[in-house]
Amino acid sequence: MNWYAVKAIYLSELARTWRTPMQSIASPVLSTSLYFIVFGAAIGSAMVSIDGISYGAFIIPGLIMLTVLTESTSNSSFGIYMPKWSGSIYEVLSAPVSAVEIVLGYVGAAASKSLILGGIILLTARFFVDYSILHPGWMLLFLLLTCITFSLLGFIIGLLADGFEKLQVVPLMIVTPLAFLGGTFYSISMLPEFWQKVTLFNPVVYLVSGFRWSFYGVSDVNVGVSLAMILLFMFSFLVIIYWIFRTGYKVKV
């Protein structure tokens, strides 16, 4: 293993975050905080509790997931797309590194950023809403797996994209709607029976449900199923990345 290369990519990508703190950290924290203020502190007090949890506290896991999903995807896709776009990818492709090391560097950095961001949002939420974490270890595991999985997705998008617009399509047009409709703001048991079944095709439901379980011990789907689904997504994304590097598709000619 070329650990020096992994470290070089990882630190270089993290440095990009520290160069743009407003965009990378402050902006997502602020926008998520607005949800806490509006739906938690303001409207939340007028809403009925769900599964015995106040509405403000109920939406915290979903909102963290919403931010982590979109940020992981965006960070990772941007991280690999930028050198592709500028041409500086030549240095990565001509270096003695394997696909594993490249993925560890880029995806590791993107996942780390999202994990830090998730932590900051969790702490920020405390200023507006009271919440508890019943299973902190599981909470951390769900958060970490989600950060990694969606950073892998972003990495695939960055490798395949051939324009800045396409970088934004998946996070904004697919991930965000799925997160909104995946039980971030409600329990899927509140939906009519037909829509409950349809919602089960939304992968984000499993992420939000598992994550919420780690906070409050309640979930829409079995926590084991949630975990299995995250691992399934992660495995699927890894297979796609393996194929891209093996064939050189959109990477080498």
Partner: peptide
């Protein structure tokens, strides 16, 4: 070359990439 890096970080990155 990455335009936002410093010259120093840029060469440190290159050395690391080659193990």
């Amino acid at each position: 070359v990455s335009m936002f890096e410093t010259v120093w970080n840029s060469v440190v990155f290159s050395r690391g990439m080659f193990g």
